[in-house]
Write a protein that binds this DNA or RNA. Structure first.
Length: 592
RNA sequence: GGGCGUGUGGCCUAGUGGACAGGGCAGGAGGUUCCUAACCUUCUGAUCGCGGGUUCGAAUCCCGUCACGCCCGCCA
C-alpha cells in the first residue's frame, strides 16, 4: 500500500505545483526521519524557493495549502513543517496495509516478465569452499532471491571453470600421485579427499626436480590442448576430477543453502565451437592485433592501456575468451545477465564488457556485483592451493555448535513452560547458527573488506539473525496461542478485524513499518543491494519489539475487537519479517 | 607508477545532496508474579581520514592529499 501511497503523494504534488505554476520535474519525495509523524515528505520547497522568491517554509506552506487531501483516498493530510511538506496517511491506508499483510506472499511485486540470470560463486573446482569465498554464494543467493521477489524470472547459474590450466594441473596430479604419499583428508568428503592431490601437485611444480617438472608441464600442456581440440578421452579424464570435487563443494553450498538451476561448464563453449567462432570474429575487429605470436585486442579507446590477449601463441583460448562465448549464450537466453564476482576480477570484467561491446552487443544488460575478499586477522589471505583459510564447513559446524550451547543454556532459565524436544533444539541450532553466518555477511555492503573473526561472525545478540528471528518466533507464538496455525498461509483472523482500533503510536509505527516492505524489495532489487533488506529487518524488529512491550494482544483485559485487530497486525508482521528473512536466505523459526 | 575500491565514537556498522549522523558491541544504571528477557529502558562516548572547493544546504558532489585493500599474467 506504501507504493500506492507514494503514487498518490506524487499525483498530489504534481497537481499542486501545476496549480502554482511551478515546475514538477523535482518532487523531492523522501522518507521523513524517525519521530516525524508522516509516511512521506517532500523537500521540493528548498529548490523552488529561488524561483518563487520566498523562503522555503513559505513555499512549503503554499504547496501544502494547495493540496486537497480529500481527493486522495490514502492521504489524510499534507502539512508544512518548516521547509518540508509532510504527508500523513489516512485510516484507509492503515486498514489496507494490515489487510495486504495478511497474505502469505506479502512483499512479492507484480511479475515483470523479465528473464534474469544471476551467476554467482563459480569457484574453481579445486577444493573445499572456504570462508574467503563464502561471501559469493551468500550475496549471490540473496541477489537472486530479491530479484525473484521483485517479480523477475530468475535462473541461478554456477559457471564451472573446467577448462583452465588449474584443472589440467589437477587432473595430472590426480593421475600421478599415490594416495599413500598424501596426508589424511580433513573430512571424509570428496572435495577434501581430492584437494590433497591438487596441493601436492602445485607443491611439486614449485619445488620439484627441474627435469621432472618439465615432464609434468608437458603432460599438463597436453591436457589443455586435448580440451581445446575437443578430444573426448581428455575431456572424460578432466571431468572425473571436476565432477567429483564439485560434488563435494555442492554439499557444502547446500548447507547455506545456495542452490543452482544450472551448472554451466566452460568446456561446453569449446565443444560446441562457439569459442572458436568468437575468436574468428574478434580477429576481424579493427582493434585486433597480432603481436608476439598472440592475438590481442587494443582497448585504449575504453581507457584500458593493457592489451587483452584472447588467443595464446599456442592457439588455445583464455578464460575471458571462453567467457565471451558464455555471455553471448546468456544474451541469447536472457534479458539481463548479473554476475556476483570478487573485486579481483574487475579488470577482467571490463575487458569482457568491452569485447562484447565491440562485437556489437548491448552491454547495458550486463551487470556486476563486486565483493571484497574476506581476510584472516593479521591481513593473511585464504588460499585453496596453499591450504590456508577457514573452511565453510568448519564455520557452519562451529556456528551450529555455539547456537546449540546457547539454546541449552537458555532452556535452564526460561520462564516459558513448553518443552523443547531434542529435534527442536537441533532445528533451532541449525536455523540460528547458519542464519547468523548468512546474516552477518549479507547485512554488510559487499564492497567493504571483512576481516574474519569467530566471535564477531557468531554473535547471537542484537543486530544479528537471531535478534530478527526471535521477532518471527514471537509472532508465531502469539498466533499459535490464539489458535491460529502460523505455518499455514491463511492467518487471517476469523470474522475480520477493524484496523481503526490500532490507535497507539506503537501500533501505527508497526503498520507503517509493515507497509514499507514492498518498497524495500523494490529498491533492493533495482540496486542489487540485498543488504537493504537486512537493514529493514533490523529496524522492523525494533519497531515490533516496541509494540510487543506496549500492546498486549492476548491479555484478559484486552477488548475482543482490539484483540482481533492486534492479531491481524501480528499476522502481517509475521509475513513481513518472515518474508524479509526469506529474501536473505535466513531461516524463520516458529519457535526458539 | 597507473586503475578500481574502502576510510563514520575504543571496536563493528547504516546512511551517496536535505529535518538533531541511526544502530549494535564493549562500559555505567535499571527492568521478568504479565502473549518467549536471544528482549526492553536509560547514561557515557563522533573535528564523518585530512585540506580546499561547489551549494541556501555536504558524511554524501568536485579537486588535492594520506592510509589500507584489490588489480595491472599468453593464470583463473
Amino acid at each position: 500500500m506504501y507504493l500506492q501511497f507514494r503514487d498518490d503523494v506524487e499525483a498530489a504534488l504534481v497537481s499542486a505545483l501545476d496549480e502554482l505554476d511551478l515546475p514538477t520535474d523535482d518532487l523531492g519525495i523522501e522518507d521523513p526521519p524517525e519521530g516525524v509523524d508522516a509516511v512521506l515528505a517532500s523537500s521540493a520547497a528548498f529548490r523552488l524557493a529561488g524561483e518563487v522568491g520566498a523562503p522555503p517554509p513559505e513555499v512549503a506552506g503554499d504547496i501544502a495549502d494547495e493540496i486537497d487531501a480529500s481527493e486522495h483516498e490514502l492521504i489524510d493530510a499534507a502539512s508544512a513543517q518548516g521547509p518540508y511538506v509532510n504527508f500523513l496517511p489516512s485510516d484507509a491506508y492503515y486498514e489496507a496495509t494490515v489487510e495486504e499483510g495478511q497474505r502469505a506472499d506479502f512483499g512479492h511485486l507484480e511479475p515483470t516478465g523479465e528473464e534474469v540470470v544471476v551467476e554467482h560463486t563459480s569457484a574453481n573446482p579445486t577444493g573445499p569452499v572456504h570462508v574467503g569465498r563464502a561471501r559469493n554464494p551468500i550475496v549471490g543467493d540473496a541477489v537472486a532471491r530479491v530479484l525473484a521477489f521483485a517479480g523477475h524470472d530468475v535462473d541461478r547459474h554456477y559457471y564451472v571453470n573446467d577448462a583452465g590450466r588449474q584443472m589440467a594441473v589437477f587432473t595430472w596430479a590426480y593421475e600421478t600421485f599415490d594416495e599413500e604419499d598424501l596426508p589424511d583428508p580433513e573430512r571424509d568428503k570428496a572435495d577434501y579427499d581430492l584437494v590433497r592431490y591438487y596441493r601436492k601437485g602445485n607443491e611439486f611444480l614449485e619445488a620439484g626436480d627441474p627435469d621432472e617438472v618439465e615432464e609434468a608441464e608437458a603432460e599438463i600442456q597436453a591436457i589443455m590442448q586435448g580440451l581445446e581440440e575437443g578430444d573426448e578421452e581428455t575431456y572424460e579424464r578432466v571431468q572425473t576430477v571436476v565432477d567429483t570435487v564439485l560434488g563435494g563443494m555442492r554439499e557444502s553450498l547446500d548447507r547455506l543453502p545456495a542452490e543452482f538451476d544450472e551448472f554451466v561448464k566452460e568446456t561446453r563453449f569449446l565443444r560446441d565451437g562457439s569459442a572458436d567462432e568468437v575468436v574468428s570474429r574478434l580477429k576481424e575487429l579493427d582493434e585486433a592485433v597480432f603481436e608476439e605470436e598472440a592475438w590481442q585486442l587494443e582497448l585504449d579507446e575504453f581507457g584500458i592501456d593493457k592489451n587483452f590477449v584472447f588467443l595464446r601463441s599456442d592457439g588455445t583460448t583464455l578464460y575471458t575468451t571462453r567467457d565471451i562465448a558464455h555471455h553471448e549464450w546468456k544474451f541469447d537466453n536472457y534479458d539481463r545477465a548479473i554476475t556476483v564476482i570478487g573485486e579481483d576480477h574487475q579488470l577482467t570484467f571490463e575487458q569482457l564488457r568491452y569485447a562484447l561491446e565491440l562485437l556489437g552487443h548491448d552491454t547495458d544488460q550486463l551487470e556486476q556485483v563486486f565483493y571484497s575478499w574476506v581476510n584472516l586477522p593479521g591481513g593473511e589471505g585464504m588460499s585453496t592451493r596453499e591450504g590456508t583459510g577457514i573452511d565453510l564447513d568448519d564455520l557452519l559446524d562451529e556456528a551450529i555448535d555455539r547456537a546449540r550451547e546457547e539454546v541449552e543454556t537458555r532452556m535452564d532459565d526460561r520462564i516459558r513452560d513448553d518443552d523443547l524436544t531434542d529435534e527442536d533444539v537441533e532445528r533451532i541450532a541449525e536455523q540460528v547458527g547458519i542464519g547468523a553466518v548468512r546474516y552477518d555477511i549479507v547485512s554488510k555492503q559487499p564492497s567493504k573488506a571483512i576481516t574474519f573473526e569467530w566471535d564477531r561472525a557468531l554473535d547471537f545478540e542484537a543486530q544479528s539473525a537471531p535478534y530478527v528471528q526471535y521477532v518471527h518466533a514471537r509472532c508465531c507464538g502469539i498466533l499459535e496461542e490464539a489458535g491460529i496455525d502460523p505455518t499455514t498461509s491463511d492467518t487471517a483472523v476469523a470474522g475480520g478485524f477493524d484496523a481503526s482500533l490500532l490507535e497507539t503510536e506503537a501500533e501505527r509505527d508497526l503498520v507503517e513499518a509493515i507497509g514499507r516492505f514492498p518498497a524495500v524489495i523494490e529498491t533492493a532489487a533495482a540496486d542489487l543491494e540485498p543488504h537493504l533488506v537486512a537493514t529493514y529487518t533490523r529496524e522492523f524488529a525494533e519497531t515490533f519489539n516496541a509494540f510487543y512491550r506496549e500492546c498486549p494482544v492476548l491479555a484478559d483485559d484486552v477488548d475482543e475487537d482490539l484483540r482481533d485487530a492486534r492479531l491481524a497486525l501480528v499476522a502481517a508482521s509475521k509475513h513481513a519479517v518472515g518474508n524479509a528473512l526469506q529474501v536473505l536466505g535466513v531461516a524463520a523459526p516458529r519457535s526458539m
